[in-house]
């Protein structure tokens, strides 16, 4: 398994598009947080909810890192390299698990670095402008949740890719899931008389993990993590099951 993890790590870091997407994923929160910290007219108010501001910008980062996770797999199918991979290691389950683990770990490490860099830059600017930055336990939980969300979206993209095996379609589903699919489900639930739809929506439930001050109607962080996490695990398990039996 160690050899497989090393091989997948080489694959991940030897393709330029992964670097481009990661740089964009890192630049978005860093630039936004820096601008907000530097230009905000209500400095102390911004500082009071600073962790929430950082985690909010990380949603797009998580989505982009999810795209990297998806491309890491689907590019193997589109370029035919999956046949080279499976010919080198016929135990497909091990290969696919190694790929998922590398995607998950790389994404979570990157998300952690991006989040910390964003926070430190913004906090430094706000402190320089005279504001006090205090990290409450709920802020820390929200920031940790942002890293977890990035990891889950990365593996979600991977799981969708396992089933669809096509890069554009996988990215479309990954992006349309939160933007379109869950809003459609929300509308259906609303029409069915469900007053609070968010707990039923896996992506939206997970997003609430990033909010340091959750409302009483919001699902808990544990609910968000378990709901989306379960879907991710099921998708990957089904994807591996199917790919062990399909022609490469």
């Amino acid at each position: 398994m160690t050899d497989l993890l090393k091989s997948e790590w080489i694959k991940l870091r030897t393709v330029r598009v992964n670097y481009v997407l990661t740089i964009i994923a890192a630049a978005i929160p860093i630039v936004v947080v820096t601008l907000v910290a530097a230009l905000s007219s209500r400095v102390q108010q911004t500082a009071d909810d600073f962790a929430g501001g950082v985690t909010a910008t990380l949603v797009l980062t998580a989505l982009l890192l999810g795209v990297v996770g998806a491309l890491n797999l689907t590019s193997e199918f589109s370029h035919g390299t999956i046949r080279v991979t499976f010919a080198a290691v016929p135990q497909r389950r091990n290969v696919l698990l190694a790929k998922a683990i590398v995607s998950l770990l790389a994404t979570m490490v990157l998300a952690t670095i991006i989040e910390l860099v964003s926070f430190c830059i913004g906090a430094g600017i706000l402190s320089g402008r005279g504001a006090d930055i205090a990290l409450r336990p709920s802020d820390k939980a929200a920031m940790a949740s942002a890293v977890l969300l990035a990891g889950m979206l990365s593996v979600l993209g991977y799981g969708i890719g396992l089933l669809i095996r096509n890069s554009p379609a996988t990215i479309a589903v990954l992006i349309l899931w939160p933007l379109l699919l869950e809003n459609l489900v929300r509308a259906v639930l609303s029409a069915a008389g469900v007053s609070n739809q968010t707990p039923w929506l896996p992506y939206q439930s997970a997003i609430t993990m990033l909010n340091p001050s959750t409302d009483s109607g919001d699902p808990s962080r544990l609910h968000g993590a378990l709901y989306l996490g379960t879907i991710v695990v099921v998708l990957v398990a089904v994807g591996i099951f199917v790919n062990e039996r399909r022609d490469a």
């Binding site: 694959k11 030897t14 330029r16």
Partner: peptide, 19 residues
Amino acid sequence: YVHPGRSGRNHLRTVATSN
């Protein structure tokens, strides 16, 4: 069956390392 964005050497490294 090669990723066009990867160097030839790195392609071989991915295959070799897996074994």
